[in-house]
Design a protein around this nucleic acid. Sequence first.
RNA 1: GGGCGAGUGGCGGAACUGGUAUACGCGAUGGACUUAAAAUCCAUUGGUGUUUAUCCACCUUGUGGGUUCGAGUCCCACCUCGCCUACCA
Length: 1037
Amino acid sequence: MISMSEAEKYNHRIIEKKWQEKWDRDGLYVTKDDSKQQKFYCLIEFPYPSAEGLHVGHPRSYTALDIVARKKRMEGNNVLFPIGFDAFGLPTENYAIKVKKNPADITNDNIGRFRTQLKSLGLSFDWSREVVTTDPEYYKWTQWIFLKLFKAGLVYQSEMPINWCPSCKIGLANEEVVNGKCERCGTEVTKKNLKQWMFKITQYAQRLIDDLDTVDYLEKIKSQQINWIGRSEGAEILFRIKYPELTQNKTKHCLIVHGVSGHRRENWFPWLKNVLQKDGWQVSVPNLPATDHPVVDDWYKALADSFGNVSTIVCHSLGAPAALNLIQKSNNKIDQLIMVAPVNPSQDWGYLKKEFPHADWEAIKKFADLKFNWKKIKQNVKKIVVYYSDDDPYVSPESVDYYKKNIPEASFKLFRGKGHFNERKGITELPELLDDLIPSVKVFTTRPDTIFGATYVVLAPENELVARCLSQVSNQKEVEKYIKESQNKSDLERTDLAKDKTGVELKGIKAINPVSGEEIPVWVADYVLTGYGTGAIMAVPAHDQRDFEFAKRHKLLIKPVIIPSQQTRIIESTGSHVKTKSFAIESIKDAGGEQKNLEYVASKLPYEGYGYLIDSGKFTDIFSLDASKQIIVWLEKEGKGRAEVNYKLRDWIFSRQHYWGEPIPLVHCEKCGVVPVPEKYLPVELPKVKNYEPTETGESPLAGIKDWVNVKCPKCGGPARRETDTMPNWAGSSWYFLRYTDPHNDKEFASRQALKYWTPVDLYNGGMEHTTLHLLYSRFWHKALYDLKLVPTPEPYQKRISHGMVLAEDGKKMSKSLGNVINPDDVVKEYGADTLRMYEMFMGPFAEAIPWDTKGIVGIRRFLDKVYQLGIRGEGIGNRDVDEKIQSLLHKTIKKVTEDINEFRFNTAVSALMILVNELQGEVKVSKNTIEKLLLILSPFAPHLTEELWNNLGNKDSIHLQTWPKFDAKMVKDAEIEFVIQINGKLKDKCLMPADVTEEDVLQYIEQNSKIQKLIADQQVIKKIFVPGKLLNIVVK
RNA sequence: GGGCGAGUGGCGGAACUGGUAUACGCGAUGGACUUAAAAUCCAUUGGUGUUUAUCCACCUUGUGGGUUCGAGUCCCACCUCGCCUACCA
């Protein structure tokens, strides 16, 4: 028995302090950029340095990755395991306002405290690479990256109703609104119109989904991101609308003026003509033959003849100057001029002449190569629209500037990647064109197969069409009232599912179901959201829960068009094959016996699944999925719809009207507009300010500092104002892992070489709560940087795992308000950092939430006491490994601990170490070699204690510089095993057998085993199943 | 409503690709040491029944079915809980 004098007791206070200081002095954990070694980049989410300090949740994930980092080092890797602080943000700012101190000073204090706490845990961070987001040397590069992305066209400004917290006086991103309440303070969020800087994250939606295939994230992280991005495939469908003004005998005559290639290549004109004619238009298309010698004069004369009574002109390419020439020479007034990819008359046409050498260029010159009388043109045309494309080989976006300068009041619409339009056809390419010609509601649906059941259309109150129609409706006041009401509702009220769905009909206005031609009512209701899809839906009450509720409440037609299976009709019918027909909800109640099948269908409503179409014209009897495809094809041909993909993901609101954030490095100049701050003036530092409170107008407090706000425009030198919005704290955290690779670089955000060596991050751990915010945002930034060739990889993190929360002892979330927070400092003081570390690893599976148990800690402390006694007892340590049993267990433990760390099963690794130590403790003599191996595999978990004992055994170099022990496969294998005998799968007997025992040997053993013999004596043995090295199962009857 | 995950002793939890369920730790009970307590060490500890004992039998992984020689593990249905998300058309 071991007697315990005071001197022999494990004193964690002395040991831990001693070694922490020594490691620090020796720079034991400073990482070198040694490109010859295999790198391993191991990253934890850097903490927000709150005033409360660390809580026991932090050390859980830090220790876990510290263990991984330490083991990787011992396995010969060059490990980067950095630490920093994400210090901008609201809590600090709110605290600063409360205590009237500078947030920068508060941040400094908090970081100081965090540093001390983190260092007391013995984590092997490389502190020389520490990064703080509020440091101007750091946020200089945050601003620099912002400008790069700004110049790449990924940032835009938009006046929009944003989520507004009346208490924090801050605009919130969608992600910061929890159940309609402010994430921080819980106040109900309202709306406020403000100009906001936005990031086009939606442009990357598809890639953010697709590239998940290339990385190793936990499945649930992937699926959560995919869900959040929310891709859904369906169709955009146009419902023509009819309202009184339109039906008054208005001229609908369109003149189509095509370009120099004529009909031969511009095959979208026949399509357009067809679509317009179906809508009741008169269409004139004088054709410029693209054959060898087109007679341009004749064509132009034909145009002039038609011009007399047209209301609309659509022109393309070189047709635009021809049209403009017509308009300026005449006194005819027309409604619209739509110019698609108009050529710039003042530019050189060499490229066109080359393509069409036989054209009559002299004649073309007559109408095209001249200066236009813009004043007169504007007088003659009510509305001008210009479409252009960003990859047009003939008309560059720059040459569109000619029109922008001369007719700035026109609306200019950019189509990405649509070429010169000349070989386009159908609505798949040019849907917006029809917006200007045929008034219609555009809806998005994932279920085009239900379109025959669309019995009404619903617009979001914010849909611009509502405002456009307002003067045409007979119940104008009622509609206006409704719109006002829903604008005043908070998000919480508007999304309250329990409440009845309110709405108001636009009386006098009808939509036309594009497939059935039926006239259906148009409603405005706030259950339709303006931010998703097109802000309008076709309502299919029979097959959508929400539409169903709405239709019931407002007594609208419910028309089933899908049945679960074709058999339904036959099974449920009373006699002959059943006919289906449309019925209103009232008629369901009145339905008589002969309508049994209808009752059946009605009882199933709303039926949201797939099935077979009924009552759907030529698509009847087709299965949903096929029907959807066929209906889309048909709609495209008719110019009434097209296949479309939608994402739930919204663009990222990047502006914060607060002080404590990175200033957005932009300047507003009266003359030049928005001008980026030139790189040489970065960083735009936060000025000192007396008052950190946001202003009542919603502007940031920076707006009040005149000598900071007023600057000279960097472009023209004229008077300008700085942008006073700051960035959200997701900005600094979107790229911090890049800075760690080269944290002191003052020329670049990180050198190319460092990035190439260290990125991507090999292992990134963080909370699940960051899956849809931080993780998505930083993947987006990284991809944008990759596209600009500023980082070498398309994905920032190769592997992402997540840790479970540490709950309070009552199983609830730890929170200050509940008073159940455990402070790690107390645990470190009383039991030691090594004990805290191991306890946090032992408490349960790393990925799951586990309640804290203060009593449970003593078990770990007892274990470390035992280890200490083992390591310290001098006379008990022998030189030779004699005991095979112990050696076998040692090697099994090495194997288990190695594998468990690889798989992040830290709890079972600890238990394996306990088993080994329990065993060793019972031995009289244990070899030094065995103790050392134990210390080595324990060292990532308990770095201080193992270092002390390692040193005590006479080793000079740190244990943390040693090589990770390998297990001997031979030692792991047992020579003898416990062999199991079962009868009908139930355990009956165990016996010691050689590991490679044969079936014959076992059978022989059984024959001599009276117990087994007795049990099977009266039974009939059917068969025997032999599992080598495990068991024999005797099956009896 | 949708998505993801989990239900194993008094508690936290183990159990590899189907093969000895309850490892390891906490707690509890008894004992040793002590004037005493703490600490430490030893023993017992899923349930029920039987037995004067360390023997023996049966039952047990949320519930009910199924597949299998054999199921905590696989399949189907259901119940409960947790997290995320939400009028996303």
